[in-house]
Every structure is written in structure tokens, then in C-alpha cells.
Design a protein around this nucleic acid. Structure first.
Lengths: 163, 163
DNA sequence: ATATGTAATGTTATAATATAACATTATATA
DNA sequence: TATATAATGTTATATTATAACATTACATAT
């Protein structure tokens, strides 16, 4: 069984304005459906997170936001990120303290991330087989799962081949 | 196939001084074997990490160390932790920014962690099947793995049954 | 036993990440 | 239009981690 790739490594091509547009539309739709407010700040933070191929730091978002909105401060960004995380619109990469747009908004599992330490990009997989195996292992010792974090560190194929 | 449990949930019993002693002995042995210095600071930090059933924060270690050694400062602790991480004597739990003793020092894989949000304890598994599956999935998209982070959040059996 | 290079630790300062707490404003809807 | 709630503004501070340079301890070559 092949894992579904929710987010690919960019491989130099792919200036992903289309991804951003799609992500914003999907977010808008998903929020409207649930009667949740997709405010200007939240939209803009999501856009900034998507704007980079690499995971984005909260304070990098803040630096940009400050140029646009004099009132921007750490809570501005962290609240927006918290909202986006809760709504499944972004993921936090724990090992980097950074954020990426969710490849499939609204989607249930938390995703598995491949982190290339060479180019800094991150791919997202959705692999039900892996999720299932982890769930089974936990069950064997009576552990009830709320969330799974899978972050795979290494080198992507593009970077490997350009060495 | 059953995962090997490198570190168990304590379940109230198990005041684990024996674990600490074993861990220190194993660490000493492993360092001696490799001609690496297991200094007093490093030993003490490892001991303090092991002293708790729960993952330990760097600054909690520092608070204790300050009472024993007037020169203790953040770098004292972070350097010791960095050393212990490199030598495979402790693990960092990325989602908690905290550290646990490695259930099997010197051991190759990075372990899979079950984190109970109720009691705060962490169990460590070594599951070759899971490692293998992750490795295969990565391979399918041409990704070369350096390290795997698996942190499973939820509730341990003890806490589940005491609800 | 002493000199010497390297590794470890000491010391000070600061960077990077994140949250608390309370005030104000905007929005939905009764 | 009043009101409750959610969102944002604002200030301050907590938490986590590293940089940079000085000093000390240790291993080992002589």
C-alpha cells in the first residue's frame, strides 16, 4: 500500500501560488461550514504559512505582520496559529518549532512528516497503514491514543541526487 | 509481533532507584568502552533525568544543580544534555521540550514514545516493525532517513482504568 | 614530572519561543 | 438596538535555548 502524499517536496519547480489559493479557499469553505470565523488575521497568517515551501516560524510570520498591522504582537500570531491548528488548517512540526499548511484541511489524522535537513522542506504523508500499526501497538499495552506525531528526519530524493 | 517495552509506565508502584543505578552503571560502562568522559556533571544530570518518572525540563535540572554547584548555568545543563543525547543516554521528547532517560542505552533506533497526558509519564517502545514500515514508506518516495521521531499522545491504561 | 593540546566547564549576555492577564473592539443575534 | 461572546489589542513576562569568550581540568607525549 502506497502512502498518500498530501504535500510534496517542491524540487525547485512549483512556485506554489495555486496551493496557497486552494488552501485559503478550502479554509474559508471549511470554516463557513462549521460556522467558525475566518477573520482577516487568521486568513493572512494561513497565507503566510503557505507562502513558504519550508516550515515557518511564528516570529517570522510576526515580522511580516508587523509591516502590515501596527498592532501585531506575539499573541496575534500565536492565537491565529492556535486557531489554525485546532481547525486542522496547519500543522506544527514539533522538532522544528515551526508550522506548515495542512495538505488536506479538515482531514482527520495528524499526518506524517518527512523533513529534509538539506533543503529544509517538509513533505506530508497520510499513511493509514502506519497510523493503524501505531494504533495497534498502543492498544497492545492498553494505551488510548489521542494524537500521533511522526516526524522523519533525513534527506529528500532531490537533495540526495544533487550531491 | 510485540513491541519491546524499554520503559514502562510506573503505575504508582516502582520507586525506581534500581533503574537509576542501572542507567548510571550502563552509562559509565558505555562511555568507558568508547573512551568518552563521563564527568561528574554529566553523571549528575543523567541521574536527575532518571530521578523522575516524568520527562524532565532542562530548567528543572538547573534549579536542582544550582543548589549543589554555584557555577551552574543554562549552558551547564544544555551541554550535559547534548552530550547525553549524542551518546544515546537520554531522549528528548520534542512535543514536551523535556528529557527522559533512555531505556536501553547505546541502542540504535530512537525509540517510540507513549505520552500519557493524564499522569504525565512516558513509556518507550522499541518496535522494529514500526521502524521498518516507516523506513519503507520513506524509501518509496526516495527519502533517506537519518532519524525517526514517534510520539504518541493519549492516556495510559492505569489512568484509563482509574477514571 | 612536566609541557602541551584538547576537551570540559565557567561566565555573561542574549536570542528564540511562547503565554498570562487584562483592556478594548467587533460581531452575531435576541 | 442591546447584549453577550468572540476576537483582537496591549503590556509584560515566562520558558527554552544558544553565542561567545575565559578559565580549568585532563590525557598523553616527552
Amino acid at each position: 500500500m502506497q502512502a498518500k502524499v498530501l504535500r510534496e517536496f517542491s524540487r525547485g519547480r512549483h512556485k506554489h501560488s495555486a496551493c496557497i489559493t486552494d488552501a485559503l479557499k478550502a479554509a474559508e469553505h471549511s470554516c463557513k461550514e462549521r460556522g467558525i470565523r475566518f477573520t482577516a488575521i487568521r486568513r493572512r497568517v494561513l497565507e503566510l504559512v503557505w507562502a513558504s515551501h519550508e516550515p515557518v516560524k511564528a516570529y517570522d510570520v510576526l515580522d511580516i505582520l508587523r509591516n502590515e498591522r501596527s498592532s501585531a504582537a506575539p499573541p496575534t500570531v500565536y492565537r491565529a496559529l492556535e486557531f489554525l491548528l485546532e481547525e486542522g488548517l496547519v500543522h506544527k512540526i514539533e522538532s522544528l518549532n515551526a508550522y506548515v499548511g495542512c495538505g488536506e484541511p479538515g482531514h482527520l489524522d495528524s499526518g506524517q512528516f518527512l523533513i529534509c535537513s538539506s533543503c529544509g522542506e517538509v513533505a506530508e504523508l497520510d499513511d493509514p497503514e502506519l497510523v493503524k500499526l501505531i494504533t495497534e501497538k498502543a492498544k497492545q499495552i492498553g494505551f488510548s491514543i489521542k494524537d500521533q506525531i511522526v516526524e522523519i528526519l533525513g534527506c529528500c530524493s532531490q537533495c540526495l541526487s544533487s550531491k
